[in-house]
Structures are given as C-alpha cells and as structure tokens.
Design a protein around this nucleic acid. Structure first.
Lengths: 341, 341
DNA sequence: TTGTAAGCGTTATCAT
DNA sequence: ATGATAACGCTTACAA
C-alpha cells in the first residue's frame, strides 16, 4: 500500500514550485512554459499523481457533485432515470451521489443533512412531501434543487421536472371512454402525492368530457411501497358493479396490480381493459401486449441535470422553472370495448 | 443565499474556541463540560451549522464514501443491486457515488480516475475486463476493491462476490435434460466475460452428465448491450435442426430474446422450453410464467459492501476472498417435455 | 514565466 | 476542561 503523492512531491520531482504544478493542473489559470509543462506532466505521470478532490473543493473549487435522492432504485422507472441522470451528469464532468428515501421522510431528512455537509452543488429528488424547512434551507444555501416526477405544492419556488400528469391520465381515461367503457376505475398514487392527485384530476376531467358520472368507489389510491395495489384490485373486484376498465396510474404498483389480477383469474382485456403507467420492455411481452403511458425519461433526466446545475450557487433566475414534458399513450392490445352484459 | 457558517462562527457564538466545538462534533475526541456542550449545540442549532465534509476528509478523516461502478442501471438486475448496495452502505453511514461504464473500458478508466481523485475508501464494480493496471493501482492505494457479478481472471488478488454461475447454468440445463430435451441451446454473455464463460461451462457440464453431445452451433454468446440477443435467437431458429430448449443466461438480453421469439411466433413452451436468468416480478406475469434462475441480490449487496469496507485502508487480510452465493432455480411453466417430432 | 505565502474548514497536539 | 496552533493538499493573489 503506497502513499499518495501530493502536489508538493510533483513540484519537487519536476524541480518547480507547487504554483506551477497547480497551473498545469488547471489550464488557463496562469501561464506555463511549454517545456516546464511537459516536465511537470512527466513528473505527475511517473509519480502516479492524482489531485485530491477534497482539497480542491475546500479551496472554493467549483463543487462538482450532485445528489440524486430517489424513493428507491428497484422501481424500473427510477432506475432508468438514475441511469440517464448519471450519464448526463458525467458528460458534464459531474459526479452523482445516489441516495434513497424509501418514501420515508425521516430517512429523507438524514440524507439531506448529509448532502448539506457535502456541499453538493445540486440535488435532484423525488420528495416525500415533508421536510419543507430543510428544502428551503438548501435553496438558501445556494444548492440547485430540482424536484423530479413529483413536487410539493407548498413549495412553488422549487423547480420541477415531470410529465404532464393530468393530461396523461386524461388521455388514458379518454381512451377507455372512447371504447365505450362507462365504469372506468383508476388506481393512483397516494392522495398526498402530486402525481396521485394530478392523475386523478386528469381522470376526472376525462370522465367529465365523456359525460360520465364520477363514482368515488372507482378511485383507489395505493401507497407506493408494499402491495397496496393488489388490495386496491381486490376491493375493485368485490364491487357489485365491477369496473370494465382500469387505469393503473401508480407505476410502483403495476406488477402488484397485474399479479393480483392474474391471481383472481381476470382476463385482460376480455373482462377488464387496462392501461398502465409503465414503459418497461416487458409490457410489450405480456399476453396481450399492454397499452401504456410512456414517459420520456431521457427528457426528464436531461432537464433535471441542467436545471440543478444552473440553479447552483444561487444563480436562480428569479422565477422557478417548471418543465412539463408530454407522456405518450402507446396503444397495444389491452383495451377493447366492454362486453355488453 | 446565505453564507455557510464555519466552525469558527460557532465557536464565537458560543464563546469558546474552535477546539471545543470540534470536540462536541466528534464525541470521544476529548472532554467537554456538559454546560459548554449545550452552549455549543445551541449555537450550532441557531446558526444552522453543518460541518463540511471536504474539510474533514482533508484532515485524514475516515473516508466515508464508496464508489459503485456498474455497467448500467437500466438493467433491473443492476438496478436492484444498486438499491441494496445504497441501503447497506447508508446503514453504515457510508455514501455511494454511482457511476456507469456502459461496458466501455474507455469510460471505465475515466471513472476510475475520478474515484482515485476522490480517495473513495472502496469500489464495488462490474469490471469490463480491461484496465488491469488501474485496478492494481487502486489496490496499492489501499482502496477496497470488490468485483461483483463478474471478475477478471488475470486479477485473482481481487475479492469477488457473485452467484455460482457454473452451477446455476448447470441446473437450468439439467432441468431441460430431465424433461427429455436433447437439443438444448444457450445464449450467454460474451466469451470475454467470466459470467459468459462460467455459464457455458455449467451448461456443458450438464450436457456431459446427461450424456448429451455438445453442438457448438447451439452455444451463442451475445453482447450485453444492444439487441445481440435477438440475433442469436434468429440464428438458432434458422438452424435446420432447431433446438427444443433454450437457456437465456445473459440477463441483459432477456427481453431482447423474448421479443424476437414473440416476433417469430414461437410459442413457449410448446415449441421451445425456456429458462431465463432474470428474476424481475414480470417473469411471473408472462404467459406462461417463466421458469427462472433467481439471484440472491441482497446477499451480493451485503457481501460487496462488507468486503469493500473491510479491505479499505489496505486492511487486506492477505488472501483474497471469493464469495459465491447460490442462485435458485424457480420452476414455473416455461419448461415442458419436447414434442416428439 | 515562476515562486512565495496566505488561506479554505477541520482535526489533533500541546500547553495552560 | 479549554485554548492556541500546526497541519491536511490545493488554489491564488502578489512578488520577483
């Protein structure tokens, strides 16, 4: 186990001062003679020198790391988002500290404390909805905060990047209505989440447009974690006047819902038409291939990183930005006209 | 945008010296009077003080971050691994820097350079197979290096955590043989990867045990990225003597394979029995439910973190550790006896 | 063009 | 029990 050479070792080996080494390390920070430069480079090479990030950051170096705080990474949607955020960040020379909250605001506050201590330049997060004060503080500190996928209504000053939740749920529901369904159910995220609320709003809008009456028993919100989606299905199936169509607007609960449906022996789309908010490749491999709402995750990733970085150092342009990208309804074969009973 | 208070500000506000503040920050580092402690705590509270990690690390503080270098995080297997690694690390107060290589050794070397500069205490990685010198250097530097899922044969000195690839492929193949299949194909990872080679070895072993002759045309290695799995399927289907069973041992190519199979109108398991190395929930939702090899990802995550951390600071116990956990063959409905032609 | 030296925010060693 | 003060490795005026 060898000891790490410092800038001083390099300077000595090259027969110059540390200032010169620093200059070749940071091109543009000052003049260096070509010959000197190569001598220094050689020294760095032979010594196997690597500048220490911690020291650089301490000396008000531009913070080069970004926090990515997600609910969890097992969820394919978040996994894909993480993948793209990392790629996008790397292409800008930024590193990503990955953290998860498990939808637990207690854990969230701990993670945020760590992020504060690290003085990350920005944070891209799916907030639990609490810890308002900490988020505020982060912004005051000049951290670029961006909420992705969801937001916190009480915090309109934070930038948000998400799909148009209202519109996507509306289009999914409208598709059902267009096929002649009159009893359309929705399983959404918890009512405390903006995605949950917005998607239900879109659903209601579609109902209104189709001249359909709203039935509260057909609106089920399921927690993101656990198997709440399955229970929602069971509840729906136990209704005396069962729905003929179902919009699964809670991405984290899609497999739980489908599993319960399969278990109950419900045949899709004969007994139940289905649209899910989930665009993993496997949705196309199902029998029948599922009609889905596809989220442009690459757009979400790109905008999140860009905003987080541009908001860093309090370079906030004043009014908060809200990026709302359109999701795409991909029609496959899980929606058909209801059986006339 | 407020300025961040330093330890000096706290000291001043509390009317003590910085040394005292540092002591209350690091309990056990020295005596502090109870009254003093509370005064300091109050000052920290009202000022909203957070110690700066960069400064602490500079002052030979225990490195508290770990690098997780994966091929990509879109792959559900890696995503799940990342999720659990993060959880495990957090439970030990360690942070995780997430990076991806896209299976590109050029990118890998860049990421590794960054990790060296950050002086991370450990790295958990799915190596591309190259950059041998850098990996060696990392170890010399006292970084705890752990290869997960795959390994590099030329680097027996590095700890490895993976499933028993030989045995899992053997059991999957043996299942086919037990059902009476005689033409069993396998689509594995590239021959340059240890997982690819090991799984093929297990496949061959099972063939031998079943007294079946090996047919080279039934062994297809597909790259991890892209849609190479689909091409392998097509090649297999074009054989004049088609296989009646297929082991998909390349996790990253499972959906590509299934998609091509569906596209070709091959019915599972009637025309082709299938076992896949992939345990995402959706495999159970397919028609028919897929027989799979389930990897105990939680074990992989736990051991990886533990090893990476214990190997840090050159605390290497001498001989490298190899943790090989057993994968589980979960029989569902995608394997049946071959149709007697 | 290059060198000197003063920080950056902590921790740790001595004194007091 | 508390306080000065010297590092830690790097950047950056300011000199030379």
């Amino acid at each position: 186990m060898q000891k790490q050479p410092t800038i001083r070792d390099v300077a000595q080996a090259a027969g110059v001062s540390v200032a010169v080494v620093s200059r070749v390390l940071n091109p543009g920070s000052g003049p260096v003679a070509a010959l000197t430069r190569s001598k220094v480079s050689d020294a760095m090479e032979t010594l196997g020198y690597h500048p220490r990030t911690a020291a650089r950051e301490l000396k008000h170096g531009p913070p080069t790391t970004l926090g990515l705080l997600l609910a969890d990474v097992s969820n394919p949607f978040f996994a894909h988002l993480a993948d793209l955020v990392v790629q996008e960040a790397h292409s800008r020379g930024i590193q990503v500290l990955l953290m998860t909250t498990q939808e637990d605001d207690r854990l969230e506050s701990e993670r945020l404390a760590t992020l504060i201590e690290r003085r990350v330049s920005g944070i891209i997060a799916t907030p639990t909805g609490n810890n308002l004060e900490i988020w505020k503080k982060l912004q005051d500190l000049g951290t670029g905060v961006v909420f992705v996928d969801r937001s916190i209504p009480e915090m309109p000053e934070v930038d948000v990047v998400s799909i148009n939740n209202v519109e996507s749920a509306r289009s999914a529901t409208a598709l059902m209505a267009a096929h002649g369904h009159r009893r359309i159910a929705i399983i959404s995220g918890p009512a405390t989440s903006t995605t949950g609320r917005d998607r239900v709003a879109g659903y209601q809008e579609a109902l209104r447009e189709a001249g359909l009456a709203e039935d509260r028993t057909l609106i089920r919100s399921a927690a993101f974690r656990g198997t709440s989606g399955g229970d929602a299905v069971t509840a729906l199936l136990n209704l005396q006047d069962r729905p003929t169509a179902l919009v699964v607007a809670n991405t984290a609960q899609v497999t739980a819902v489908l599993r319960r449906l399969a278990h109950a022996g419900i045949s899709i789309p004969d007994e139940l038409s289905v649209v899910v908010f989930e665009d993993s490749p496997w949705t196309e491999l199902m029998t029948p291939p599922l009609t889905i709402i596809r989220q442009p995750i690459d757009m979400l990733a790109r905008h999140s990183v860009q905003l987080a970085l541009s908001n860093a150092n309090g370079t906030t342009t004043g009014k908060p930005t809200t990026v709302r990208v359109d999701a795409e309804l991909v029609e496959r074969s899980s929606v058909v006209a209801p059986k006339t009973a």
